[in-house]
Design a protein around this nucleic acid. Structure first.
Lengths: 336, 336
DNA sequence: CTGTTAGCGCATTCAT
DNA sequence: ATGAATGCGCTAACAG
């Protein structure tokens, strides 16, 4: 099996071949496929037949170049493994797909330099719109995006000054609401387990502000995981053996804290209360179920897609800044 | 804020503008950017400066059309939420990215009709290669892929007759190995919790074959989740109250079975043994840790990327069929 | 309803 | 080391 090479690239059918096989002009073949209403039934049938016969698949690169519509939307995520964003990307993809658009995904790995380069490459592919998790930080990137002249939706955060549109919620407010909740429950010895990404740290700041005092914090690298949650609780218990409650920056971390607690024979919530973030699919079904902050990820994806589609079809947009809000869901892990 | 419209699309700089600003010809500007070795330093500097001044971003659509290299690789997954494949897609993306290629993702939602249409659209975008989870089923799709004349890698399964290349493992063998393990452990009352996707069912068939007798089976819709695992155990216990061990088609399901068992006060593994599949990141860190079948997902992604890159650069490929194998990892959930 | 002409932005010839 | 011409495959604009 050594020395094998690529299959011989047989000549690929172009629209030209289809037109010839159908006995019509190039443009008629083109219209029969992309705008059939203005072509006679007979012609359409003959073109369809020619397509079958030749195995023609339209070259979207060429079509997009001429029509200036690529039917692609670029999406930027920190990493695919950040499961937090998956439901959003999922509905984004489906909604776009239903309207004939396709998503091309780029990863930044939480690295600003990569963000800039990925963004440029993406723009170079001439997408009709752009989805971004978080806010675009660098001024250079903001300007490039603005100049691209396409709809851009920043998500999972809020700002008064988006590149174009923004749809998300305030991480500071999330932190404060959880902080208030912890304060009201009267726990004295509280800890935080948080990823080191920008938005998680914003939530932690809000949490601390609402609590009115600093608290022991276990900082773990993003993306977070169950294993990191176990480690975080281990660290927190070392720093504060009397720990009563832990606020986590994700449900994955909360899950890890829960498992580590159970492995130490701690009862949840009597010995240790746990709060997560994100309302992941498993949070409601753990034993005990996990108190968390619900954010409507799927809806963010759906509305982002709709905003982009509307813009592409020149429909007016009502609001450039959309606050999706959030809600604290009290479950068994905090005795709710 | 009503009636807002798209930002006015300012004229976007093309290579023509850059060339004019730099006082060189179009092609010299092109070479300065994409093949700088054959251009004088002075010229390169002037072109770079012109790029900065104009904010030029190359139109990759146009470049790809002419050069017949899009630097894109298409990937097909059942759904992004199938976390099983995420590590593979992750390394695939990174490895491709390091070589200058970008991944465009398509979802089939486990629907053959969607698979065909997504495949065509993908081919139309002129990718330089294609990654597919599972084997391509329909003959039509196989032929289209073959005609596209690009490297195609089917993954996470094996076959003697791939469209082009295949890299994965035998699901039948996985099922048999787990079945043998269960048989040797001497459990009498055994159940299966499985997703209803093709590959999971292949593993179940192997499991049953090795066990030598049929067993109660809880069938859940793909993609599987913790909640579905809880439901599956509930169903299995109703069918067989004396249940001693459960074989699950994913670690997510196994996790759900574990949680449901714990919520019923069952001890793992004394009252119920559990085996998963996939060796998800959390499997080793659960309490108790989950026995599972390890598959090297990241390596599948890496090697797929390498195969595609090698083909694109006309390097010979050693093997078109690569068996990655798998290994049963015995952990606490089966008393290992 | 159908056809002709032109050109999207770039890279691959071939020339110098 | 640089440039002029050509065309990738398709669709928008204007004919008929």
């Amino acid at each position: 099996m050594s020395g094998m090479n690529a299959p011989t690239r047989t000549k690929i059918a172009t629209l030209h071949d289809v037109a010839r096989a159908a006995g019509v002009s190039l443009i008629t073949a083109s219209r029969a496929l992309s705008n059939p209403r203005i072509v006679s039934e007979k012609t359409i049938a003959r073109v369809q037949q020619a397509v079958e016969a030749t195995g023609y698949i339209p070259n979207l690169l060429a079509g997009s170049l001429k029509s200036r519509r690529s039917l692609m939307v670029a999406g930027i995520v920190p990493a695919l493994s950040v499961s937090q964003f998956l439901p959003t990307v999922q509905t984004l993809t489906s909604t776009l797909s239903a309207a004939g658009y396709q998503l091309i995904l780029g990863q930044t790995n939480y690295d600003p330099a990569q963000e800039d380069s990925v963004l440029s490459t993406m723009i170079g592919r001439q997408p009709d719109g752009m989805f971004i998790t978080g806010l675009v930080q660098s001024d250079k990137a903001r300007e490039r995006l603005a100049r691209a002249g396409i709809p851009v939706v920043e998500t999972w955060d809020l700002t008064d000054d988006p590149v174009d549109m923004v749809i998300g919620f305030s991480h500071d407010k999330v932190g404060r609401e959880v902080g208030d909740y912890f304060r009201k429950r009267g726990w004295e010895h509280v800890g935080v387990a948080t990823g080191n990404d920008h938005r998680a740290l914003l939530r932690r700041d809000g949490f601390v502000a609402a609590l009115g005092r600093d608290v022991p914090t276990a900082l773990v690298p993003a993306p977070s995981s169950l294993a990191l949650g176990r480690q975080a609780l281990t660290d927190l218990l070392r720093a504060e053996p009397r720990l009563q409650a832990v606020c986590c920056s994700s449900d994955q971390l909360a899950n890890g804290v829960l498992v580590e607690a159970q492995s130490r024979g701690l009862r949840i919530p009597q010995d240790l209360a746990i709060c997560g973030f994100g309302n992941a699919d498993f949070a409601a079904h753990m034993f005990p179920s996990i108190t968390t902050v619900h954010v409507d990820g799927p809806e963010i994806g759906r509305r982002t897609a709709q905003l982009i589609i509307d813009r592409c079809q020149d429909r007016p947009i009502d609001h450039k800044i959309i606050d999706m809000g959030f809600s604290l869901i009290e479950r068994a892990s905090t005795g709710g």
